[in-house]
Computed example of a mutant assay.
Amino acid sequence: MGRVLCGLLKPDSGEAVLDGVSVYASRAGRRNLQNKLSIVFQDYATSANPRFRIRDIIGEGLTVQERREGKKLDRKAETSRLLELVGLPADFADRFPHELSGGQLQRVCIARAVACKPEIILFDEAISSLDAHTQVQVMDLLRELKDRLGLTYIFITHDLTSITYLCDDVLFLYQGRVTENLPVERISETKDEYARKLLGSIVVFDTEESA
């Protein structure tokens, strides 16, 4: 599903539409998507080039912004700002991925996604590989960034705990089809069998006290 939404895999049926423009119908549709959406993947280790320093990884997002806006950025200053935005020291810019913890590296990937100045960020199981304590910290960061930058999130996950904390609306999918669509505050009212099994796995915790 994530690959369909981000323009990498054409659906067998139906269509993906953004702002009234079909993503797959034309090159303009793809360009519209590329200008508005960025991605944070599940595996932070393989989505960050191990040979790049952190400044170069974030620089991938800055290159997109420069190309779109047609102007050069102060890379050093912007990289420092983005690192601090995601809760990391500016001097991390000189480090390599293997010198960071999993949570720190995923924050770098979030900074790279934000560097593009997107309207939408797609998170594809983006916190599932992190330990529980780090998941809480990253979820708090995502809520802060969402409010601060006015972002829209598409959050793909099997973990309904994070959905109830981060999302406004929930779509349950089974075998590629939407089985139910609910506001998050009505998630317990689902009648879908698959959705109810997922609900049974929810762990309740206080995110703000645990962060």
Rank of each mutant, 00 (worst) to 15 (best):
V4P: 04
L5Y: 03
C6W: 02
C6F: 05
G7E: 03
L9H: 06
K10Y: 14
P11A: 12
D12L: 12
S13A: 15
S13E: 14
E15P: 03
E15R: 13
A16K: 05
D19F: 10
G20I: 03
V21M: 02
A25N: 12
S26P: 06
S26V: 07
R27E: 07
R27N: 01
A28K: 05
A28Q: 09
R31W: 03
L33I: 13
N35R: 08
K36V: 01
F41L: 08
D43Q: 14
Y44N: 13
T46D: 10
T46F: 04
T46S: 15
A48N: 06
R51P: 05
I54R: 04
I54A: 02
D56G: 00
D56Y: 10
I57C: 03
I58L: 15
E60K: 05
L62Y: 03
T63W: 07
T63F: 14
V64W: 01
K71D: 02
K71Y: 14
K72D: 00
K72H: 07
L73Y: 14
L73F: 13
R75F: 10
K76T: 14
A77Q: 04
A77F: 12
E78D: 04
R81F: 07
L82P: 13
L83C: 06
E84Y: 01
L85P: 15
V86C: 12
L88K: 10
L88V: 08
L88T: 07
A90T: 01
F92G: 01
A93G: 08
A93W: 14
R95V: 05
P97Y: 14
E99Y: 05
L100W: 05
Q104L: 14
Q104Y: 07
R107K: 05
V108E: 04
C109V: 11
A111G: 07
R112D: 13
A113T: 11
A113D: 00
A115W: 01
E119L: 08
I120C: 08
I121Y: 11
L122M: 00
D124L: 04
A126T: 04
I127Y: 09
S129D: 03
D131A: 10
Q135D: 12
V136W: 04
D140A: 00
D140Y: 08
L141H: 08
L141C: 01
D147E: 11
D147V: 11
L149R: 02
G150H: 08
G150M: 06
G150A: 09
F155L: 13
F155E: 11
T157G: 03
T157P: 03
H158I: 09
D159A: 08
D159Y: 09
S162A: 15
I163V: 15
L166A: 09
C167Q: 02
D169P: 00
Q175N: 12
Q175D: 09
G176T: 03
V178H: 00
T179W: 09
T179H: 08
L182I: 03
L182G: 09
P183F: 12
E189Q: 00
Y194L: 05
K197R: 15
L199R: 07
L199I: 11
I202G: 02
V203P: 09
V203N: 11
V204F: 03
V204N: 11
F205D: 07
D206K: 06
T207C: 02
T207K: 03
T207S: 13
E209H: 09
S210A: 11
S210G: 00
A211F: 09
